[in-house]
Amino acid sequence: MSYEELQRDLRGNIQKVCRFLGKQLNSEQLGSTVKNVSFSVMKDNTMCNNVTVKNPEDETDFTLPLMRKGICGDWKNQFTVAQSEAFDKVYQDKMSSLDPSLFPWLEDC
């Protein structure tokens, strides 16, 4: 399951996870789950969207958000061409021995 698949059909993918886990949700539970795992709700939830990091200089803690925009493919606006090419090289080196069918989202690229 990829982020792109979740964006296309969140409710259907939650149902798929429930089937995999052998759990059944009633319509109220499913609706609540869909609402609470949506990007906007999770981004506003400090339990989901924050990581605490220790400043190495003075040992104080500070919090960083983990979520940015929730837009598929927005990484292309964040990486430089050189960073993207370096990532692609490492990715190819590490993943080339795996079956491409494990990565269906690559077909969207």
Rank of each mutant, 00 (worst) to 15 (best):
Val51His: 02
Gly73Phe: 07
Pro56Cys: 03
Pro56Gly: 03
Ser101Gly: 00
Phe79Trp: 14
Ser97Tyr: 11
Gln83Lys: 09
Thr60Leu: 06
Phe62Glu: 07
Phe79Pro: 08
Met95Asp: 06
Leu98Ser: 05
Asn55Leu: 00
Thr60Met: 03
Asp74Cys: 05
Met67Tyr: 14
Asp88His: 08
Cys72Gln: 13
Trp75Cys: 15
Phe79Leu: 15
Ala82Ser: 13
Glu57Leu: 14
Val90Asp: 02
Gln78Pro: 00
Ser84Met: 04
Ala82Asp: 15
Gly70Asp: 00
Arg68Phe: 15
Ser101His: 08
Thr52Cys: 09
Lys94Gln: 09
Pro56Glu: 07
Met67Ser: 08
Asp58Glu: 04
Gly70His: 06
Phe87Val: 09
Met95Leu: 10
Ser97Ile: 05
Thr63Met: 09
Trp105Arg: 07
Ala82Glu: 15
Asp58Met: 02
Asp74Ala: 12
Asp99Gln: 01
Lys69Asn: 15
Trp105Thr: 04
Lys76Cys: 09
Gln78Val: 14
Val81Tyr: 01
Lys69Val: 13
Phe62Val: 04
Cys72Leu: 10
Asn77Gln: 13
Gln92Glu: 10
Val51Leu: 11
Val53Pro: 00
Phe103Leu: 00
Leu98Ala: 02
Pro100Tyr: 00
Ser97Thr: 07
Asp74Glu: 15
Trp75Tyr: 14
Lys89Ser: 09
Leu64Met: 11
Leu102Met: 10
Lys94Asp: 11
Trp105Leu: 08
Glu85Gly: 02
Thr52Leu: 07
Thr60Pro: 01
Asp99Phe: 07
Lys76Phe: 05
Leu66Pro: 05
Leu102Arg: 07
Leu98Met: 06
Thr60Asn: 05
Phe62Ile: 05
Ser101Leu: 00
Lys94Thr: 06
Trp105Lys: 02
Cys72Ser: 15
Asp99Val: 02
Val90Arg: 08
Asp61Trp: 09
Lys89Ile: 04
Trp75His: 15
Leu102Ile: 06
Gln83Asn: 05
Leu102Lys: 10
Asn55Gly: 03
Asp74Gly: 11
Gly73Tyr: 12
Pro56Leu: 04
Ser97Met: 09
Leu64Ala: 03
Val51Phe: 03
Leu66Lys: 06
Thr52Ile: 12
Glu57Val: 11
Trp105Pro: 03
Val53Leu: 14
Ala86His: 07
